[in-house]
Amino acid sequence: MNVLLLQEQLKQALIEDVGFGDRTTEAVVPAEQWVSGMVVAKEEGIMAGLSVFEQVMKLVDPRVEIEPVVKEGQCVKPGLPLLRVHGPARAILTGERVALNYVQRLSGIATQTRRAVDIVKPYGVKIADTRKTTPGLRMLEKYAVAVGGGINHRLRLDDAVLIKDNHIQAAGGIREAVRRVREKMGHTVFIEVETETLEQVQEAVALGVHGILLDNMTVAQLKEAVALIPPSIVSEASGNMRLEHLEEVAQTGVQVISIGWLTHSAPALDISLNLDGSVKKMKGETP
């Protein structure tokens, strides 16, 4: 991940949530009070975002100490401790919601990704994400997909060329769209074409593009399409790829299955922070 960009995103999230101060915490909790606590999983899933939790807390107050109990990408069970946290009570309570939001969101994505990856693994198929991400969270959400064992599709529009149906419509056809791309782009740019029919697949193969996206095809159509695509061209199935359909799609021989809902609809993993009630006064402070 881009560390500088991540820091800015986390700062903005805290600014959004804290505003000019945590009124409740500042009224209830003495400035000198220190506490310890534990972040705990409340359901089974794949852990992602441990370092993000720590960075959020450190931005609120660098004195907060975080001790991971599990590893990134580990499968956790309900009740399992994930992190130990210790430090100024005000800082921990102020940063709690933002830190947990990130961990819950990223762990939810990693969990669903791992489920998809496990289904298609016997067939040598890779699970990829899409650009259907939450605005401002793409880098982190795609990171969570990778933690879950998936691969990342384009991070941004400048990563590669993906000629979709509307591009084809605007250009007047696949051949013309590919011609225009090659005229303006260097030879190192990856070119993928979205197709909806077998005729389009044949055309894309003849043009020698690097990847062919097979959009919203039936299993029978996918099998026919894969038979037309040489191994040197990446074959990617996409469109309404639900967990219950993944195995039969993987059996068609496609190399990649891209899934939009991994990042736009994966449910957050239920995770909470519980303070244990222990109190420690800051050095130099008097009760």
Rank of each mutant, 00 (worst) to 15 (best):
A250W: 01
R182Q: 04
Y123K: 07
D159Y: 09
E236L: 08
H86D: 11
G37E: 00
A171E: 03
M217Y: 10
H245Q: 13
G45Y: 09
A146P: 01
K11V: 11
V219G: 08
E196A: 07
Q169P: 00
P231L: 03
Y143D: 02
T111H: 06
N2M: 07
Q255G: 05
M57F: 12
D61M: 06
G149R: 00
L106V: 05
H245R: 15
F20A: 14
N240W: 00
T286W: 14
E72D: 07
Q7D: 15
G253N: 00
I168K: 09
K11H: 14
H210P: 00
V234C: 11
L5P: 00
Q33I: 04
L4T: 15
V98T: 15
D61Q: 10
A89E: 09
D17W: 09
V76P: 07
H210I: 03
R179L: 12
G253A: 02
F190Q: 10
L83A: 01
L10P: 06
T218E: 11
Q7V: 04
V56T: 06
A266L: 03
N2K: 02
S235K: 11
L155S: 04
V64F: 07
E54D: 13
A27G: 14
E96V: 08
V103I: 15
S51K: 15
M47C: 15
A204P: 02
V3E: 11
R179V: 10
V35E: 11
G49H: 05
P287R: 09
G136I: 08
Q104M: 14
V29E: 05
P68D: 08
R114I: 03
H245A: 11
A204N: 05
R23A: 13
V69Y: 11
V189D: 04
E224I: 03
Q55A: 12
G173A: 08
G172M: 03
V219S: 08
P62Q: 12
E32M: 10
Q251C: 02
V76K: 01
